[in-house]
């Protein structure tokens, strides 16, 4: 990843591609919910139960857990832990790293077998790696979105909201 790249721009067509991949993963595994996270904790896309609350908090916490496990890997002289599995009584969470930048999260209950989730997540992460490569290339041309007038408007909003 280019460390000097300050933002990732996910286009409408790539978002559609990501959502299609997540929809198919849910349909094929019978999982309840799936989402794509950036390693910074931001949710890029999701699919599944529409009534799930607190997606933002979930994204921050899951990304935090993964980042923490990466540091554990470093202490153990492992390159990385590519996969994390959290087992609950009702629901389980499977998280897989995508090219050290994104994470694919799948939430499922006892009706879905972990083996199936593992195999099909691997297929999905391969597809999403391709998406990430294209997004990184496209992110270099960002002037159309982040214009000077956009920055000025954000600054005005910041002045308006951030006050005692």
């Amino acid at each position: 990843m280019d460390p000097q790249l300050t933002s990732l721009i996910v286009s409408t067509s790539e978002t559609a591609h990501i959502e299609e991949t997540l929809d198919r993963l849910i349909a094929d595994t019978g999982a309840n919910y799936s989402m794509l996270l950036d390693k910074s904790g931001q949710v890029i896309a999701w699919s599944g139960d529409t009534d799930r609350q607190d997606i933002t908090s979930l994204g921050a916490l899951l990304a935090g857990t993964f980042a923490s496990s990466r540091e554990v890997a470093r202490l153990l002289k492992e390159k990385e832990f590519k996969v994390l599995f959290q087992q609950g009584i009702r629901e389980n969470i499977f998280t897989e790293l995508i090219a050290e930048q994104w994470m694919l999260v799948v939430m499922f209950d006892k009706r879905t077998h972990i083996g199936l989730v593992k195999v099909l997540s691997k297929r999905a992460t391969d597809e999403l790696t391709g998406v990430l490569d294209r997004v990184k290339t496209e992110s270099r041309a960002k002037d159309q979105i982040i214009s000077t007038s956009f920055r000025t408007s954000v600054e005005d909003t910041i002045d308006l909201l951030f006050k005692d």
């Binding site: 790249l5 300050t6 933002s7 990732l8 721009i9 996910v10 286009s11 409408t12 978002t15 559609a16 950036d38 910074s40 931001q42 890029i44 896309a45 960002k142 979105i145 982040i146």
Partner: peptide
Amino acid sequence: MAIINVAQREIRC
């Protein structure tokens, strides 16, 4: 890294 999601019209830092 900030994420700019064009489809959902979102910018997050």
